[in-house]
């Protein structure tokens, strides 16, 4: 093994070439292969390279056309794209220099498909020159894949945890009011303690029209505004919950005075009937409310009370909206249309 220096030129024996450029090919002026690097020979699955014509061993992909000596010896600014005829899935870039005796010397490198080529041909560290960064690239691909797998799994677990946390949550994300789950817990607790309480089931009127004509952003704004009204018109100890798209329930612990509840309901309807400004347009809605109190029942039941309040609410809806109705009581005047 060794190289010879003379007048600024260097000549290499086959062993030195094999070590420096394990993917090289040397061809004579007639296109016959006179020398082939060991890794290239390994890629040819044991087929002999020496003595064969270059065009039988390699096929040209870029530029397209047959691989002949005139093509090889043409001055190319870019590396040629070639594949092995014995395994066309492995593509290479080939840098060609003419030799003094009319032949050509080719040094090949793997393209971006290197990982696949390495896998198909079971290449090892020894198959690459020690200065070749291909092995580093394979290392990086593998390390990156491991990290990405780990992150993908982490994201899946976090997503699961998020869903679980949302199921556990007691707050409505959009309005900041409590949600259905919080409402159920609160009513069960009050019933268990034997406390008296009032209940309002509120359904917005004309909300769908706001959503349809002014868009969901306007609808969301209206829902937040209604939430503000419910918070303002109730005590800190009362609980307002959003239980559906435009449905709300308010629970009033220790308040069974139906006259007072109806006054509060009236105020809520009056407030939400005020035009709500959104991006220069007025959103106009109203509310229908069904009211009940725990003292109407011998043994109060949360589902029964909600269902009764819901029925009263739909009596209001049928009668023209914008009013409040006590379970079992007469309709009182609301404020719709004013």
């Amino acid at each position: 093994m060794g190289a010879r220096l003379k007048d600024g030129s260097v000549s290499f024996g086959p062993l030195a070439l094999a070590r420096l450029m394990p993917l090289h090919l040397a061809v004579n002026a007639t296109g016959q292969i006179v020398n082939a690097g060991p890794t290239l020979q390994k890629l040819m699955n044991g087929q002999a390279a020496l003595g064969r014509n270059i065009g039988d061993v390699l096929a040209l992909r870029r530029p397209p056309g047959p691989l002949t000596m005139p093509v090889l010896l043409a001055q190319h600014d870019l590396a040629l794209g070639v594949v092995l005829t014995s395994d066309p899935t492995v593509s290479f870039r080939a840098l060609v220099v003419p030799t003094l005796d009319g032949g050509a010397f080719l040094n090949l490198s793997f393209g971006i498909g290197v990982a696949e080529a390495v896998r198909r041909h079971a290449l090892t560290v020894e198959d690459f020159a020690a200065t070749d960064l291909t092995v580093e690239m394979l290392y990086l691909v593998e390390a990156k894949t491991a990290v990405m797998d780990e992150l993908r799994n982490l994201n899946r677990r976090l997503q699961g945890a998020k869903v679980a946390a949302e199921e556990q949550a007691l707050t409505d994300q959009l309005t900041g009011l409590r949600n259905r789950r919080a409402l159920d817990l609160q009513m069960k607790a009050l019933i268990r303690l034997g406390a008296t309480f009032g209940l309002m089931h509120i359904d917005l009127d004309f909300f769908k029209q706001v959503n349809d004509t002014l868009g969901h952003a306007a609808g969301d704004h209206v829902l937040r505004q209604v939430a503000r009204v419910l918070t303002q018109e109730t005590r800190a100890t009362d609980m307002a919950a959003r239980v559906g798209g435009d449905e709300f329930v308010v629970v009033f612990p220790n308040l069974s005075d139906t006259a007072q509840l109806m006054r509060i309901a009236d105020r809520i309807i009056a407030s939400v009937t005020e035009p709500i400004a959104f991006e220069g347009r007025d959103c106009r809605i109203s509310a229908s409310i069904g009211v009940t109190v725990s003292t109407l029942y011998d043994s109060p039941d949360a589902d029964r009370m909600l269902s009764d309040a819901d029925s009263a609410l739909y009596d209001v809806k049928r009668d023209g909206r914008g009013k409040a109705l006590l379970v079992g009581g007469p309709l009182i005047e609301g404020l719709v249309g004013r």
């Binding site: 696949e116 390495v118 896998r119």
Partner: peptide
Amino acid sequence: RFDLAVRA
């Protein structure tokens, strides 16, 4: 043994 490529 150490193959540079991960086994399929």
